[in-house]
Amino acid sequence: MSAARLRLTPAIFFGRAALAVYLLIMLLWLTFPVVLVLLASFQGTLEVSFPAPVSFDAYKTIPPSYWEAFWFTIRAALLATGIALLVAIPAAWAMVRGKLAGRRIMSNLVLIPDVVPQLILGIALLTVFIPLRLSNSFAGVMLALVALSLSTGLRFTEALLEGLPDEYEQAAQSLGANKFTTFRLVVLPLIAPGVAIAALFIFMQNLITFELLFFISGPSATPIAIRLFSDIIDRGIVPYAVAMAGILVYVAIAFYTLVAVSLGPKYMAGSVMSRKG
């Protein structure tokens, strides 16, 4: 608190009130869709009414095909996130520290999957996947997600390593560590919190990716987003579709909480950078 307290003049009071209202509206706008889906999932309809009985009926009617699609998506999303980070972290390290020629161009090239419309990317992948018999398969969906995840993963880890002073690595080398040991014992632990946040974002992205997978998926490889889409087109907004949407929201919240709790609050509030000494 500052020593001299400001008197609460009307101008300051209305200024603060306006700011509070502004923030409230913004928060409502951001949370409205999620809140609506959650409310709807307990009433079995998008026409939410107040007050309304809370019931789990919609959840109980979720058909097995939905659960199959749900677990299919979780498996593909997790695997793609893991593979993407395993590839992205060493690649980003080589790009940031290796001072490779044409690094700027490379950094921009890997962004292509992020800036090309996903539908187009999906078509391109399909032309490769069909002769390889990868379309309409778990591997195909997973690989498509890897392409997308890699781009995000590289972007994250590049920023993380740029933010890590290279003195830690120089210190490790002067103490006798070779490149690999330096990476394992110094770089990786220092960027780990940032990598966890990257993993969270990539996983969420994978969980809800739709356009990219639209052509690649099929009857024997259906991600949950596609399942929901085709059901809603065919049958309208059925209660169990809303319930499944609710479940996806719970998964998102659960993963966010997991990462937040294991890292502590100081890493979560908008920061993706690693800690510094």
């Binding site: 002073p165 003195e167 632990p189 220092l190 800690r275 000494g277």
Partner: peptide, 12 residues
């Protein structure tokens, strides 16, 4: 043995 201006102690 190298001693850096900012020490570069491994924080973890």
């Amino acid at each position: 043995g190298l001693v850096f201006q900012n020490y570069a102690l491994f924080p973890h």
